[in-house]
Design a protein around this nucleic acid. Structure first.
Lengths: 199, 199
DNA sequence: GTCTATAACGTGATAGAC
DNA sequence: GTCTATCACGTTATAGAC
């Protein structure tokens, strides 16, 4: 809403801190990264950092929010037709398979944030609710276009798709030989009367 | 191998510590539980505990091992025919839905243990490998009995089943209204020519 | 507004008395 | 086998200089 893109989000120092934090969260995970580490790599001391972000968890939330704002990735699938939506899902899995750090981060956070008192709890609940709703919508659209096999229930298939993405990530983290993309696209195609092109 | 069942596993104090640790790991998770907490609830001091289990991680491994020994649950599905195997999978999900603490514990550990240097890494890799192999075996048996729909690939379906169990648990932890058992049994029945009785 | 210095606490782990 | 005492470290948070 501001005229220059910077003041809308905060100072340059804030941006630097956010970049550094995201890097370290990716490569080392949230819990294993200390506020001191992030501060040192940002060229300031750790209380200096805590002036900008009062707690480590506030910093985490800012990183997550900015990732959504910048990449628009996690749930911003609206406006796509059903087949494109499923294609993006598979493409997202393929992209994840090139970034182990961020997969670890989100896998860890998803389960950490299961605790109702976790600072990112509401964020993840909203993220999952929104993604699920988008998927149900896309699948229902496909159903009315007779592009879905007749025994597919959109509500259940949506839960399956999300569960497969999460669960396959765990298997892939434990054993990098796991073919996340192959397993996911096999399921996607099992929903459709006509297979998705190019996968 | 010892004559009385006790000395095979350790002293009564060890058993008490293991019980207490499992309780606390279930209710608060591994990382949020301190060695001091476990020791206090066991009626000893924390160096007293560390005499029996030299590190917190050694204690964790002992808890995991004992759970396997006592319940024989996680991967000891051998000797079951394919349909019974799938039934036990669904029954396990139903049982999990009554014990939030242990679902949180294993969900947390699965992703924590994705790090190759985690003390439980090999344990979880072995656990997943073994479960997957058992499932592939059971599904192949069903395939040769023509009990499987013709387009089902055992290797992929096995990965799907494990991923669905893990992924649905995450959704259920974030939103307890999630129907883990329904979603899992729907997938199981979608594999079979004849639906599983009683689900 | 921004940061340095420091506090106050909890953690896992160890040394050595009993 | 269990204890007291202590260590070194990481954590969040605050007081106050610039």
């Amino acid at each position: 809403m501001a005229i220059d893109g910077r003041s809308a989000r905060g100072s340059a120092t804030k941006e630097l801190i956010l970049d550094t934090a995201m890097d370290l969260f990716k490569s080392s995970g949230f819990r294993a990264t200390s506020v001191r580490d992030i501060a040192a790599r940002s060229g300031i001391t750790h209380p200096g950092l805590l002036y900008h972000f009062p707690t480590k968890e506030a910093l985490l939330m800012a990183v997550l929010q900015r990732r959504d704002d910048v990449e628009g990735e996690p749930v911003d699938f609206h406006g796509l037709d059903g087949r494109a939506l499923l294609g993006h899902l598979v493409a997202g899995a393929a992209k994840n398979a090139t970034e182990r750090g961020i997969v670890e981060l989100f896998a860890n956070l998803s389960v950490e944030a299961a605790a109702p008192d976790h600072p990112a709890h509401e964020y993840f609940v909203g993220r999952y609710t929104s993604l699920r709703a988008t998927l149900v919508e896309g699948l229902e659209e496909l159903a009315s276009a007779h592009a879905l096999r007749p025994d597919v229930l959109p509500a259940i298939a949506a839960a399956h798709l999300i569960a497969l993405m999460d669960g396959l990530q765990i298997q892939w983290l434990l054993d990098p030989a796991t073919d996340m993309v192959g397993a996911l696209s096999f399921y996607v195609n099992s929903l459709l009367t006509e297979p998705l092109e190019g996968i």
